[in-house]
């Protein structure tokens, strides 16, 4: 395997983006920032890969206009996944492993505010037996949360502790769309939204975009004084059928976690769009209490669809760059109730 590192990361997240659903206007400054961090320019990037969704944007081929942000003239080697851009990072990592590229720029974007996100996501369910009922995302998460509470796996207090820590940490994150800790007691005193979930248990609807620059070997050392080397990256998916899954678990997260070495992880950025899902992930990944989770504030502070997972990897890389950790974990999820999961471990060398 070739040594590949995260050497650049830029993001924009906000409650409502006043611009086009292709988010070109966000991608232009993000890509510029990634160039500035790495000293690379367009011609230094061997491969481009992005993640986004047509249904989020409300039209077919929504990613097509986004490539304008690259300025892809002359043509570029480029690919697109209809997935969170964390998986685009995986495709770019693969491309570098084949030797066909030494550098890659990965981006993801999503303007959730263009539609009604919790309703749009009902289209991710079984189209014959579920979507016609339009179960919304928040309700599904609430069903999952209650299963865990009834089984004694977690309680509302544990969920509130996740929120309290996230929103407190989010105060230091300029891209947080929700922040401000209070107290667990205060959080629990707030009204229930989708019983047993309160609003703060659910990631806020967020618009935004993000980009990550990958580079191999010496190219990485050229671009960064302290590259965040990818020591492992794996992913896995579970069956969707909610009725035959144990919804208090995420086997795909456990499988992905088993594919990398998590023993030395100091900081984990977990893509848990609902507070109880962080508790599930910690268990599935076997993260001990010494592991610091989501110092960025995590998805409960800002959760741009189709970039949120990539942002977790970017935040995990930043902890390496700023010297605050030697080994970090970035995690991404997709699909209903932690159906699909990716883990990426980063380390200083």
């Amino acid at each position: 395997m070739r040594d590949v590192a995260v050497v650049g990361f830029a993001q924009r997240q906000m409650p409502v983006f006043d611009g086009s659903p292709t988010c070109v206007e966000l991608l232009v400054p993000i890509i510029a920032e990634a160039y500035e961090q790495t000293g690379f320019t367009k011609v230094d990037i061997d491969f481009w890969c992005s993640g986004s969704s047509d249904y989020l944007a409300g039209r077919a081929f929504s990613f097509v206009a986004a490539v304008d942000a690259i300025g892809p003239t002359p043509p570029v080697a480029e690919s697109h996944l209809e997935m969170d851009a964390a998986w685009a990072l995986y495709e770019a990592w693969l491309k570098i492993q084949t030797g066909q590229a030494d550098t890659a720029l990965v981006y993801g974007f999503g303007k959730s505010s263009a539609g009604v996100l919790r309703r749009t996501l009902a289209l991710q369910l079984d189209p014959y037996t579920m979507t016609p009922l339009w179960p919304d995302t928040v309700s599904l998460a609430a069903l999952q949360a209650r299963l865990g509470i009834d089984a004694g796996l977690w309680d509302e207090k544990a969920m509130a502790e996740v929120v309290q820590r996230s929103l407190t940490d989010a105060e230091k994150n300029e891209y947080a769309v929700r922040s401000g800790g209070s107290s667990v007691a205060d959080l629990l005193a707030r009204p229930v939204y989708a019983d047993p979930l309160r609003k703060h248990d659910c990631a806020p609807v967020t618009d935004g975009a993000a980009a990550i620059v990958l580079a191999a070997g010496d190219r990485a050392r050229e671009a960064s004084d302290r590259p965040a080397w990818i020591s492992g990256i794996t992913h896995s998916v579970d069956a969707l059928h909610l009725g035959s899954r144990d919804l208090t678990r995420s086997p795909s997260a456990a499988r992905a976690g088993a594919g990398v070495d998590l023993d030395e992880v100091e900081v984990a950025e977990l893509h848990a769009p609902f507070s109880h899902q962080e508790l599930i992930l910690r268990t599935e990944l076997g993260l001990g209490s010494a592991v610091q989770v989501n110092p960025s504030g995590g998805p409960l502070a800002a959760n741009t669809m189709f970039a949120g997972g990539l942002i977790r990897i970017g935040e995990a890389a930043r902890r390496i760059w700023d010297g605050s950790a030697g080994v970090t974990l970035g995690h991404a999820t997709a699909g209903p109730l932690l159906q699909q999961n990716l883990v990426c471990t980063l380390e200083v060398r």
Partner: peptide
């Protein structure tokens, strides 16, 4: 254009 498709700037 939000991005010139040649130069990637507005």
């Amino acid at each position: 254009r939000g991005a010139c498709p040649v130069d990637g700037v507005p």
